[in-house]
Amino acid sequence: MKDNSLSYYVQNYFLSYLISQRGYGNNTVASYRDTFKLLFMFLESDGKKLSKLKLTDISQTCVLQFLEWAETERHNSVSTRNLRLTVLKSFFGYVLSTSPEFSGQCTDIINIPAKRVEKKPPLYLTESETKLLLNAPDRNSREGIRHMAILTLLYDSACRVQELINLNVADVTIGRCCKVFVKGKGSKYREIPIFGETGKILERYINAYGLKPGEVLFTNRSGGRLTRAGVSYIMNKYKKILQERYANRFNSNLSLSPHLMRHSKATHLVNENVNIYNVRDFLGHTSVITTQVYLTSNPEVTRKAIEKASSKTVSESNDYYSLQEKEDLLAFLETLI
Rank of each mutant, 00 (worst) to 15 (best):
K37P: 00
H259T: 07
Q292T: 08
T152Y: 08
E316N: 10
E163T: 00
T86D: 05
Y233T: 14
E215R: 07
S157I: 07
D34E: 14
K200I: 10
Q65T: 00
K89E: 08
I206D: 12
G93H: 06
N220P: 02
E129A: 09
A208V: 05
E129K: 05
S157Q: 02
Y294N: 03
R176N: 10
D138I: 05
Y321L: 15
Y24F: 14
N140T: 12
F91Y: 14
V10H: 00
N253D: 14
T286W: 00
Q105I: 02
L330D: 06
L39P: 09
K185E: 10
T296R: 13
E44C: 02
M41V: 04
I150N: 02
P121D: 05
I109F: 14
L15I: 08
V63P: 07
K115E: 12
C106T: 13
P137N: 04
S141N: 12
N135G: 03
R245V: 02
G23I: 11
T173C: 14
I306N: 08
A266E: 01
G47E: 13
K2D: 06
E101G: 01
I165R: 01
S79I: 13
S79K: 02
N111K: 15
T130E: 05
V180R: 09
L329C: 06
N248G: 01
D319F: 07
R116E: 09
F14P: 10
Y32D: 03
A305I: 02
R245C: 01
S5F: 10
I194L: 04
R221N: 15
T98Q: 12
L133M: 12
V216F: 09
F332N: 03
Y24S: 06
E143T: 15
V314H: 03
F332I: 13
I241P: 09
F42G: 00
T219H: 11
Y32R: 01
N207P: 01
N271W: 00
A114D: 13
V117Y: 04
M1D: 06
T302L: 15
G93F: 02
Y277Q: 08
V216N: 11
S252L: 00
V274Y: 09
L6P: 00
L217Q: 01
K120T: 03
Y205D: 08
K131F: 06
A158F: 11
L295S: 03
N4L: 04
L295E: 02
L167S: 01
T173S: 13
D319P: 06
V172E: 09
T173I: 08
G210K: 09
G93Y: 05
N220A: 09
I194F: 06
I145L: 14
Y246C: 08
V29I: 09
K89M: 07
G199D: 05
R33D: 14
Y233N: 13
S232F: 13
Y155W: 12
I19D: 12
L211V: 07
S7L: 01
A331W: 04
A305F: 13
S59Q: 10
S99A: 13
V301N: 03
T219A: 10
N27V: 14
A309Y: 10
S222I: 10
Y13R: 04
I289C: 04
A208Q: 15
V172Q: 08
S322L: 03
E327T: 10
H263R: 12
N27H: 10
H75L: 09
I206K: 05
D3Q: 07
Y32V: 00
E203K: 14
L123T: 09
M41H: 07
S5M: 03
N27M: 05
V29C: 11
I194V: 05
